[in-house]
Computed example of a mutant assay.
Amino acid sequence: MRYQLELFFTALGYFTRIPVPAWVPWSPERLNNAARYFPLVGWVVGGVGAGAFLAFALVLPVSLAAILSMAVTIRLTGAFHEDGWADACDGLGGGRDKAQVLAIMKDSRNGSYGTVGMVLMLLAKAAALVELAAHGPQVAAAALLAAHPLSRLAATSLIHWLPYARDDASSKSKPLAHALRPAELAAAAFFGLVPLTLLAPPEALTALAAVAVVTLWAARIFLRRLGGYTGDLLGAAQQGTELACYLGILVAWNFT
């Protein structure tokens, strides 16, 4: 039980800026074994985001509550996934071949594709949350609680199914370049899917379908362009599928 708790704290410390106990050891092998808990980290991030949204919505318009709650989760994660999205936009948008795409993504500077992609992603997520909140702040909060774990399950599934694209051992995501064992994948699926029960069945189904479509589309692009995934591409997948979850819920309302 202690080892499992250590793995969870390993994942939490890697993907957020939340301090973890000093007694938790770190190693590349432990980070790889902690992949089963990546969606569970989404429970924490989604819970903080949902709580922040509800608190802000008590005293501010929902548009500002949505933006500020996003700022809270970005601060909590250190913009870890957003940075991956921006780098992926730059690399896939500006790179002509695999080597150039990888080189661009490793560059710490943001280019035009990354800047535009980041602005559009943040605007789209904020607009989606505002639309969800039109049915009540609790609806937007439930969407946040569902989207963060589900999107991290989508990224974790890419670790399992795709090969790692980089050859350099210095990459910060190199420790993740291993497929999950069946029990680990099942645990990740459990933590990623359970929060969907917070949504009405039609909303949960369309959200899950939207996330699945975006995940498969991302996998196809990653394989075609790079032959696999990188850490930046995993961050991009998390951002894309988080937005897809919100959009899936909105789509469901058009058919009910």
Rank of each mutant, 00 (worst) to 15 (best):
A179G: 12
A127C: 08
E242Q: 14
R75H: 03
G94H: 04
R36C: 08
D87V: 14
G228H: 11
A188F: 10
W23H: 14
P28Y: 08
L12K: 04
L31C: 03
Q238G: 08
M121S: 08
T241N: 11
V214H: 01
G93W: 06
V116C: 01
P149D: 09
L40T: 02
A179T: 08
N110F: 10
T156F: 10
L5R: 13
K172A: 13
A71N: 09
M1W: 05
V194S: 09
L12R: 02
T73N: 06
M118Q: 08
L58G: 10
A66V: 01
R220D: 10
L162T: 02
S173L: 00
A186F: 07
P19E: 00
V44E: 01
V41N: 04
L122E: 11
A86Q: 08
G114V: 13
K98W: 00
E82L: 15
L144A: 02
L185C: 09
R36Y: 04
L68K: 05
V130T: 06
A65E: 04
G51H: 12
N110G: 00
S63W: 15
A11W: 05
C245D: 06
A126Q: 07
A124H: 00
L199T: 03
R17S: 02
A200K: 13
I74N: 00
A34E: 08
N254H: 13
A147I: 13
M118S: 14
Q4G: 03
M70G: 14
A210Q: 07
V59T: 13
G227N: 07
F9A: 14
A237W: 11
A204Y: 07
V213D: 05
A126P: 03
D107Y: 03
G228C: 10
Y229W: 15
Q238V: 15
F222C: 10
T206L: 15
P202D: 01
A57N: 12
P182K: 10
P201I: 01
A188D: 09
L5D: 00
V119H: 03
A183I: 06
A11N: 05
S108T: 12
G93F: 10
I104N: 04
V20W: 06
G117K: 06
R152S: 12
A57M: 06
L176W: 00
L243D: 09
S112F: 12
P19T: 05
M1C: 04
W161R: 14
G94P: 07
K106I: 03
W161E: 11
T241R: 12
V251L: 15
V62W: 09
Y164K: 04
T115W: 00
D87Y: 10
A71H: 08
D87R: 10
C89D: 04
A127Q: 13
L64A: 14
T115A: 15
A103E: 15
A177D: 08
V194F: 13
L64Y: 14
A99M: 09
A155I: 07
H160E: 12
T16R: 07
A79D: 06
I18G: 00
A142Y: 10
A177C: 02
V139H: 15
F38C: 07
L205F: 07
T197L: 14
